[in-house]
Structures are given as C-alpha cells and as structure tokens.
C-alpha cells in the first residue's frame, strides 16, 4: 500500500466529496482535508491518536464522485494502519482482530438458535486451513510467532 502524493495534493485542494461524505456532512469536526494537509506537510503524528481517522466509514462515496477515482479514504486507511501498528486501535477493532486471527471468523453460528429456527446444521468453518495459511503468511513476512 502506498499513497500517491500527487493525487493527495489535488485531493487537498478539491473537496468535491464533502457534499456526499456522510461523516463530513454529519459529524462536527470531521475534516479530511486537514488530515491530508498534515500528511503533505509531514506532520501527521497527532492524527494517529484521534477519533477522526476512524470516522471514515469506508462508504466509498468519495471514491465514486472523485474525478481521479481516488478519494481521501486512502489517506485514512494509511493512518489507521499506522495507528494499529502503534497499538492505538479502538478496543472493538482490537477485539475483532484478535477473534479473527484466532478463529478466522468474527462470530460463530449458534446451534441452539439454528435448531429453534429449523435451520440445518451450519457448514463447517475453514478455521484449520485459515490458521495454516496465516502461519505461512506470517513466516513469509518474517513475523515471529
């Protein structure tokens, strides 16, 4: 993943998506161009600990309206990834991630509820194959487990 600074520069000056972005329209203080300005000025550190970078809903409206088909969600994703590396992830994201890397899922079918609803037994999860693949992936990146 990388950021295209030429596109970011244009993005910083444009703002056409502000009329469609649900967070720009409805969450006071959410202002992605401020964030992008700081990325361009190499002064983004203080955003890593902010609520703002998690307020991008990844709805892709900015991408679709953008004449570059770019969208500032790219910048937000980059900052969220960096924030996660520094352990600044919101609690629920952390919980979700932990469950995902442990089970390959974010929740399991509930057999008692299924029985009550007359649903057939749920198909088997791919947990074992996923965990094997996850290990291969970590090894390829040199992650110690």
């Amino acid at each position: 993943m990388y950021l295209d600074y030429n596109l970011l520069e244009k993005c910083y000056k444009c703002g056409a998506c502000y009329d469609l972005c649900p967070s720009c329209l409805n969450l006071p203080g959410y202002d992605p161009r401020k964030v992008i300005g700081d990325i361009l000025a190499d002064n983004y550190e203080h955003w890593l600990n902010s609520e703002s970078i998690w307020q991008c809903l990844e709805c892709h409206h900015c991408l679709e309206i953008c004449y570059q088909h770019y969208g500032f969600e790219n910048a937000m994703t980059a900052l969220r990834t960096l924030a996660s590396k520094r352990g600044l992830t919101p609690q629920q994201v952390k919980r979700g991630w932990d469950m995902f890397v442990r089970t390959g899922k974010l929740g399991e079918p509930q057999s008692s509820a299924r029985k009550r609803l007359g649903l057939p037994q749920a198909a088997e999860s791919g947990k074992d194959s996923f965990l094997k693949l996850f290990k291969i992936y970590q090894d390829s990146k040199g992650v110690k487990t």
Binding site: R80, S84, W97, F100
Partner: peptide, 13 residues
C-alpha cells in the same frame, strides 16, 4: 470451509 470474508474495517486497516 469458508471463513470471514474478511471484514474490511477490522482486518484491512
């Protein structure tokens, strides 16, 4: 054999 798709906002970030 399916797993989570996986969810973008949790995993991709």
């Amino acid at each position: 054999g399916f797993t989570c798709c996986p969810e973008k906002s949790l995993v991709n970030n």
